[in-house]
Amino acid sequence: MICDLNVPWPRTDYSSPTGSEILSLKKQLAILEELGYTHIALNFTLDQGVKLPSGNVNPIDLKLVQEFQSRLKIFTRVTLIIDDVSSHQGLSKLNTSFDLISVIPRSEKALQLAASNLEIDLISLPFHQRLPFYLKHKTVCSATDRGVLFEINYGDMISDDLKRRNFFGNVKGLIRASRKRGMVLSSGTSDPLSLRGSFDAVNLLVVLGLDYSRAQATVTEQPTKALLNGRLRLKSHKQAVVMGTDILNDSENIGHKRRKVETIVDRI
């Protein structure tokens, strides 16, 4: 299985997307499928200020991309942008409605909070910008020790020189600070032409100094861990035990042959 955990949902608020937005999302999914990805997460980005509705907090309607459900395994994900440490209350409301929860910390304090305390699966940093803080080994590893993974989005830097420069530097910084552990690679772009095959994306990390097996894990094992974490939060008894044949794929059939029976206990 090859995962891309960041396919942006066209809207960043609770309005419903237009027909053309859905069409371009479908085109993107078609290309991802052709590039060999099997597990996709649609990412809904939420600014801190946006008020959550009282009813359903998940605007992603998987029925809109129904035809892809037999071809790709599609998950939903929410990303919360955190500027101010004091107001992250929204997180507890979002907890049960999405398969994956991630945050984008905008300050060092927010990063520390996300790394040490928040109930999340991923920390996504804007690597195509100059980071406003220095990535410290202690902060980063406190996250990886808890099983919270860092996400690298390669999509934005493909088309822009300056972003590319920042990306290379920042990713090197993350590789150093995380001691080469706990990274997830995903696209994070809504431009279909900025998508790359997993070999190419992984190869870029190899060029940046990650060894091949670890680089490969950033699109296979690590994102699976994140998805598994999310599944445990939703469906498990005390975050530890779920019974089933194939936990990640349990709700829908995916075209090719299923993976062998596995219990979640084996994976932990």
Binding site: I158, S159, R164, R196, F199
Partner: peptide, 20 residues
């Protein structure tokens, strides 16, 4: 391969080149 991945255009028309 990394250089191939980072190509965005061939003769001013946008493309993606993928290593198989």
């Amino acid at each position: 391969c990394a250089a191939i991945m980072l190509i965005t255009r061939l003769q001013a028309s946008p493309v993606t080149i993928r290593v198989l």
